[in-house]
Design a protein around this nucleic acid. Structure first.
Length: 838
DNA sequence: GACTGAACTATACC
DNA sequence: ACGGGTATAGTTCAGTC
């Protein structure tokens, strides 16, 4: 009997003699790598029809207990059957808990349960790891005390203890959760490769950088010098290790990973590039890429989140491969300032550090001295990746603990998976049998059914306003679900006393007052979020912040989950009802504010902007209090802020107020300007237009009139006309969202991408394409914009006409329109034709 | 060949 | 297939005269 403390990190399972075993790899508090092996009962549920007699049930159990299967050469049978009182979709039921020998047989057994007494079968489509975690409660990243038998020097269970490259292996006899959490410092290895071709496996891997705690290395087989292979610029770089050829480079990489034996092997976009590239090249040279603790090669699956976008997920056994980009996409991108998720921008935003400047080109074109920069560039990418992992680790860890899924799965999952995992791991509290995952056809019909009506947006009256107040509902969708008890399971067909009833685009729906498990569960998340927030306030550190953020994101995602066609607990009716309430509460509140004599300017989904006029701030706060006293449940309207001025403009077409486009100047000494929707915040407009617009907005808001802004604009126009603008100011960046060949309409950025391709510059879907618009060649007409596209490096004169009339003036036209100035007339000196001219 | 509405495309807001 | 409805707006495409 051996005993150790243990923190679970990576979960996997294997079969031995027809039985399932869970293999959890983690560490103990001495930092030793420990593997524990465990088993767990497997079962599925048969929900019984209402009103069966005891006799009927007993005879059914007898029949089920006799089920024996020979599936794929494996003898298996139903082990035992228990009858239980459970809930299914919020309704009490009698259900049979049917135990099987092997988890993989649950499906086959379910197929044999075609008895009339059974209403439906559930619980056989949950991953074994998820099932194990729920069943045995060995949650990722919590500390446990393990007791069991050592498998270190035995052939038992296929000799797993000897096959794995670990410190000790234990077959669990018992374990308990430790009350006090211990510190866990994970071992991390970041990596990055450089290649000559971007297409997986097409070019040589020139170098690989590795960064860990006190460890920095670039392995390469290239020096840039053929004869003697000594490059005088790089020979003294101590982090560079030179090997003979690409095959040895791969071998050396594997050796380092195995020697360092990290918990996490971390890359950036490494699911989509680095790991598959390494695998492809290793295959070519027949080098075994034995990164796994059991000597296995990385495995790739398309099953993970976002597989549809050409993503595969790369898994290395025992060592957790993390593609940081995937986690950032899910958990962070919506809160970020960065315009792209490139390593450069993300590192800049979170670390205040950037990639080294190095213009990537084919290695054959590099000069001798450039190799030093290339090596440093490669190393620095791993340094950034390493630091980013450290930065995001508390978030990943908190999410993993909260949704109770291993870090590997968590890091690839989308928000719907977060919510669903949380639900599945908390069903026991509500004695619920899990709902099934929708099948392919079911998803198809859910999607083809058309979409539900969304939120309400109030058309603004264009103008410059003083003393603007902004109210918004706190976590609106979430508090509606909780306050109105909305979910697929709480909806009732027959009218019931006190039920919440709402008219939607799909008809009228009612929800019982009896709390449903989804609203209850969400309320619980909501409370935990409040608690975490308070914890953070009293003890502000990276961990309490991460916990608070995790609960925030989780609670905000539940509505999206209910309306997501792939969800187990999908309900279109519930989603439509939530959105109908969103519209109703916003519209009712707008009316209420108007009824009290205020002029409402604008509203979008959960917000309302109105004029304070002569009223004091404390009077506005009184109004808020009153409005809140009439809101049901936990619904809450909150003061987003007081603003000195605000501007709303018309749409380009002219007559109506533009929604989702406004700017506000804060009422405090900081004079911060909040800009929404304007070209200033759109990355597909050139920097010049964005900056000019931003400056115009700032001037107008600060001064309350257009005078300085007009002077400023005139200066800029003069500069543009006299060609004083730098190329970087006029470059337009547009994302290539699909392969070039799939475009039906050949727009400017597609032309630019084609040009890049012709120049052998790698372009692929997801790249930001840069270009500018040049003036027409001598004698030629302007024609289509795309015919004048030039790459930033291409020499040429920018098209003054285009940049004035298609970039700068459109960006500011509507702003000056608020002051009834026709900017085109002023700039171009043209007289507008009006009725008066006739 | 100029004009025009529809289609396609990208991106933001919440 | 992996959050989704509400919006703005530019450019090209296809049909018309």
């Amino acid at each position: 009997m051996v005993k150790t403390d243990f923190i679970p990190l990576d979960y996997d399972y294997f079969d031995f003699k027809g039985e399932n075993y869970i293999r959890v790899i983690g560490r103990n508090s001495e930092g030793k790598r420990v593997c524990v092996v465990d088993t767990c009962p497997v079962y599925l549920w048969a929900v019984l029809k209402n009103g069966l007699s005891v006799k009927q049930i007993n005879s059914l159990i007898e029949k089920i207990e006799k089920i024996k299967l020979d599936s794929k050469g494996r003898q298996t049978r139903v082990e035992k059957v228990e009858i239980k009182d459970k809930n299914f979709l919020g309704r009490p039921v009698k259900a049979l808990k049917i135990f099987a020998t092997n988890y993989k047989d649950l499906h086959e057994i379910a197929n044999h349960l075609d008895f009339d007494e059974i209403e439906c079968r559930r619980g056989y489509d949950i991953g074994f790891v998820t099932h194990y975690i729920s069943e045995k409660k060995m949650n990722p990243l919590l500390w446990y005390e393990i007791k069991g038998e050592s498998l270190d020097n035995t052939e038992e269970l296929g000799g797993i203890g000897m096959a794995l490259d670990i410190d000790s292996c234990i077959r669990i006899e018992s374990f308990k959760k430790l009350e006090k959490e211990k510190e866990f410092k994970s071992k991390v290895l970041a990596y990055d490769i450089e290649t000559d071709e971007i297409k997986i496996g097409d070019g040589e891997i020139l170098m690989i950088s590795l960064v860990s705690d006190n460890f920095k290395k670039v392995i390469t087989w290239k020096t840039g010098v053929e004869k003697g292979r000594v490059n005088k610029h790089t020979k003294d770089l101590d982090f560079v290790e030179l090997v003979e050829d690409e095959a040895e480079l791969l071998e050396r990489f594997v050796q380092y990973v195995r020697k360092i034996s990290p918990d996490f092997l971390v890359g950036y976009f490494s699911d989509g590039f680095d790991l598959p590239y390494l695998k492809a090249r290793a295959q070519k040279f027949k080098v075994p890429l034995a990164l796994g603790l059991d000597d296995t090669q990385p495995r790739f699956s398309r099953g993970g989140a976002r597989a549809g976008k050409g993503f595969v997920t790369g898994k290395t056994s025992g060592i957790i491969h993390i593609d940081l980009l995937r986690f950032i996409q899910t958990a962070y991108s919506q809160y970020m300032q960065s315009e792209t998720l490139s390593l450069n921008e993300v590192a800049n935003e979170f670390l205040g550090d950037e990639k080294k400047t190095f213009k990537i080109q084919h290695s054959t074109g590099l000069e001798e001295h450039q190799w030093k920069d290339y090596f440093e560039y490669n190393l620095h990418d791993s340094v950034l990746t390493y630091k980013l992992f450290e930065k995001f680790w508390p978030d990943m860890a908190e999410f993993s603990k909260i949704i109770q899924e291993p870090v590997f799965e968590l890091s690839r999952a989308g928000l719907s998976k977060y919510v669903e995992s949380y639900i599945l791991h908390h069903l026991e509290k509500y004695n619920e049998i899990p709902e099934k995952r929708p099948m392919h056809e079911e998803i198809g019909s859910r999607r083809s059914g058309g979409k539900v009506e969304g939120a309400f947006v109030l058309e603004p009256r264009p103008g410059l306003y003083e003393n603007v107040v902004l109210f918004d509902f706190t976590s609106m969708h979430t508090s509606i679900i909780i306050s109105m008890n909305i979910s697929g399971q709480t909806r009732i067909d027959k009218q019931e006393k006190d039920a919440n009833t709402i008219e939607t685009s799909m008809g009228k729906f009612s929800f019982t007052k009896k709390p449903g498990f989804i609203p209850l569960l969400l309320e619980d998340i909501f409370k935990q979020r409040k608690k975490a927030k308070a914890e953070y306030k009293s003890n502000p550190d990276r961990i309490t912040l991460a916990r608070s953020n995790a609960f925030k994101l989780l609670s905000a995602s539940v509505h999206g989950y209910i309306g997501f066609f792939g969800a187990r607990y999908y309900s279109k009716e519930a989603s439509a009802s939530i959105l109908a309430y969103v519209r109703k509460f916003n519209q009712d509140t707008i009316k209420e504010i108007e009824n009290r004599g205020f002029q409402v300017i604008y509203g979008d989904t959960d917000s309302i902007a109105f004029l304070r006029d002569k009223k004091t701030k404390s009077e506005i706060k009184e109004l808020l209090k009153e409005l809140n006293s009439n809101l049901p449940g936990i619904m809450e309207l909150e003061l987003e802020g007081f603003f000195k001025r605000g501007i709303w403009v018309t749409t380009r077409a002219g007559n109506i107020g533009a929604k989702k486009k406004y700017a506000l100047l804060s009422d405090d000494s900081e004079k911060r300007v909040k800009i929404r929707g304007f070209e200033t915040v759109r990355r597909d407009w050139c920097t010049l237009a964005r900056q000019v617009q931003s400056n115009v907005i700032n001037l107008v808001l600060e001064e309350g009139n257009e005078k300085s802004a007009l002077e400023y604009l005139k200066e800029i126009v003069k500069k543009v006309k006299s060609r004083k603008i730098n190329t970087d100011q006029i470059v337009i960046r547009t994302m290539l969202k699909k392969p070039i060949s799939e475009y039906k309409s050949i727009s400017p950025h597609v032309v630019a991408a084609k040009k890049m391709k012709a120049l052998n510059v790698p372009v692929s879907s997801g790249n930001l394409i840069e270009y500018y618009i040049a003036q027409p060649e001598n004698g030629k007409k302007r024609g289509l914009v795309r015919d004048r596209v030039k790459l930033p490096e291409e020499k040429g004169l920018y098209d003054i006409e285009y940049y004035l009339n298609k970039q700068i003036l459109p960006a500011v036209e509507n702003i000056f329109q608020v002051f009834e100035l026709d900017i085109k007339e002023i700039i171009e000196g043209k007289k507008q034709t009006t009725l008066g001219d006739f």
